[in-house]
């Protein structure tokens, strides 16, 4: 067998010893490089440590906002996906318009317009709840597309079989379509959760005291950029890496069962 630089498909697994050795060497090399480059700028820890409560509060806010937005955007996404399959045209077109508009806009634009434009005009001033709703509207459009794709991935033959045994349309959705859709969409929806956590950082522009806002505040107060932003990055990774691993696990489950 000729050993090339790129792997075959499917890739042959590396030996465990080779994996561990590679990881150790890389850790050493990269942390050494970082140390050489940044050690002189990473010494203001005491001052930043004084702000740890602000930081932790911000982190808690990020988790809370992301979790709330996940629930709300899943509900919005599910309703929108169903509306897109409605026989009632105005409902279907409203859903299409919503999905396409939101997916065509950067989140910043949606947040700025939604908060300074719409929320201010109607006198809704609770930043956190506005932020959650805007984030959910944004993410809901993507989840709607994920769910629509999931519903469409269930073949015509399933509808035929369901009708053949005498299920009603509602029963078909409940017993045949939804369970299969759920299995299909769980991995991408989990991935969307990871996006939500990252995207919630943008809410700092409307002054919501979440993690990024807190780090920025600490930076302004202490003039210690690295000491504020390195923990910021780590805190996001602590949240997103497990979600990403969980997504990979869910993907492997779907692949083996069908």
């Amino acid at each position: 067998m000729k050993a090339g630089f790129f792997l075959d498909r499917p890739a042959s697994p590396a030996r465990p010893a080779a994996k561990i050795l590679t990881v150790c060497i890389l850790l050493l090399v990269y942390s050494g490089l970082c140390w050489m480059a940044f050690s002189h700028s990473l010494k203001n820890w005491e001052q930043v440590w004084n702000y740890r409560v602000t930081f932790l509060n911000g982190w808690a806010a990020t988790i809370g906002i992301s979790a709330a937005a996940l629930l709300l955007s899943t509900a919005i996404g599910a309703l929108t996906a169903l509306a897109r399959r409605s026989a009632f045209l105005p409902l279907r077109y409203t859903a299409v318009a919503y999905v396409e508009t939101v997916r065509g806009l950067p989140l910043v634009v949606l947040v700025l317009f939604g908060f300074y434009g719409i929320a201010n005009a109607i006198g809704w001033n609770d930043r956190v709840s506005v932020g959650i709703v805007l984030l959910s509207l944004f993410s809901g459009a993507y989840i709607a597309e994920i769910i629509r794709g999931g519903i469409e991935s269930v073949g015509r033959s399933q509808w035929d079989s369901a009708r053949a045994i005498g299920l009603t349309t509602t029963q078909t959705y409940r017993f045949v379509i939804f369970p299969q859709v759920l299995r299909q969409i769980l991995p991408p929806v989990a991935g969307q959760f990871s996006s939500l956590i990252k995207d919630s950082s943008l809410l700092y522009i409307i002054g919501i005291p979440e993690l990024t806002f807190a780090a920025n505040q600490i930076n302004s107060a202490t003039y210690s950029t690295f000491e504020s932003f390195v923990p910021l990055g780590i805190c996001y990774l602590v949240l997103t890496l497990p979600v990403s691993l969980w997504t990979k696990y869910l993907e492997s489950q779907v692949r083996y069962e069908t």
Binding site: S157, S161, A162, R163, G166, Q180
Partner: peptide
């Protein structure tokens, strides 16, 4: 629908719910 529920129907393939 009631007629279908009292009729046994089997297609060429993909009858079952996976």
């Amino acid at each position: 629908r009631r007629h279908r529920s009292r009729t046994g129907i089997v297609f060429q393939a993909y009858n079952l719910f996976p």
